[in-house]
Amino acid sequence: RYPDVIIELMSASTANTDIGAKKDIYEGTFRTPDYFVFDPFNPDSLQGWRLDTNLRYQPLVPNESGWLWCETLGLWLGIWQGTISRETAPWLRFYDSEGNLVFLPEEAEHQRAEAEHQRAESEHQRAESERQRAESERQRAETEHQRAERLAARLRELGEEPDN
């Protein structure tokens, strides 16, 4: 079985072969539905083709972000500027149909850990708020108790028994 999607990372020395002989093989022999080429040292080099009903490659037209749609995967393929493994560069990345970056496993784990940290922080703040509310309620009750004692003392001074 031949691949359904091929993403070729080009270099100056392989570019002609990648968009020439290899592209012809992927189109005519492999019949690979989606073929992309990208030179990591030239962020403007992303190109892609999709087999049409006549089994001929048709060039893909980039969207307003410069991304190419990969029909087979149901994902956009585009350039993302960022750091991976301590290397900051333009990277070829996948985006979902809404344009959200598809995370690498380590990024997904980081996102999960960050969400868990945020949840724990929110829970801590909720508990602190509850503690402060309880303390405020305790102080209010204490103030009310003191006010009641003063009122009872004043009533006794006036000859009244407050408990009756």
Rank of each mutant, 00 (worst) to 15 (best):
E109L: 08
E121P: 13
D44T: 12
E128D: 14
V102S: 04
A89E: 07
T17Y: 15
L158N: 01
E149F: 01
E116T: 13
E160F: 09
N164R: 09
R119M: 06
R140S: 09
K23R: 15
P59R: 15
I19V: 15
I79C: 03
I84Y: 07
L60H: 00
R56I: 07
P33W: 00
P40H: 12
R147E: 09
S11W: 04
E106I: 11
E137K: 13
Q81W: 05
G48F: 04
P90E: 09
W69Q: 06
D52A: 04
P105V: 02
G82Y: 00
D18M: 07
E161K: 12
T29V: 11
Y35R: 06
Q132A: 02
Q132R: 13
E109A: 10
A152I: 02
Q58C: 09
E160M: 08
L104Q: 07
T17M: 11
L104Y: 15
L101C: 05
L104P: 03
C70D: 03
P59S: 15
Y35I: 11
S129D: 04
K23E: 07
L9A: 10
W69C: 01
L73R: 01
E135V: 14
T143L: 07
G82K: 04
R56T: 09
Q146F: 06
I6F: 08
P43D: 04
P3C: 03
E161H: 13
I84G: 00
L101M: 09
V5F: 15
S65N: 14
L9C: 02
D96E: 02
K22G: 12
W80D: 04
R150P: 04
L77K: 05
A152K: 01
A113H: 08
R31N: 06
R154Q: 03
Q111N: 02
R50L: 00
S129Y: 06
E27L: 05
I84E: 01
G28H: 13
E27G: 00
Y2K: 03
T14M: 01
P62K: 01
H124W: 08
W76V: 00
L55I: 02
Q81D: 02
Q139Y: 14
E121W: 14
G159E: 02
P59H: 13
Q47F: 14
S136Y: 12
L46D: 08
S129I: 03
T83D: 08
S97P: 04
N16Y: 04
R147N: 00
T53Y: 03
R140V: 04
P105M: 03
S65M: 05
A113F: 00
G74A: 10
T17K: 15
L55K: 11
T53K: 09
T32N: 04
E135Q: 15
E71N: 05
N63G: 05
A148R: 08
E106W: 11
R140H: 12
E135K: 03
I84H: 14
R150G: 11
W76A: 06
E107Y: 03
E87M: 10
G28A: 10
G159L: 00
R50E: 08
G78S: 07
I6K: 01
I19F: 05
E8N: 14
P90N: 05
L151C: 08
E161A: 05
I6P: 09
N164W: 12
S13H: 10
V61E: 12
S65W: 09
E106D: 01
Y35A: 09
Y2Q: 11
S85Q: 10
Q81V: 00
E130H: 08
P162W: 01
W49A: 06
K23M: 02
Y2N: 10
V61P: 01
D24L: 15
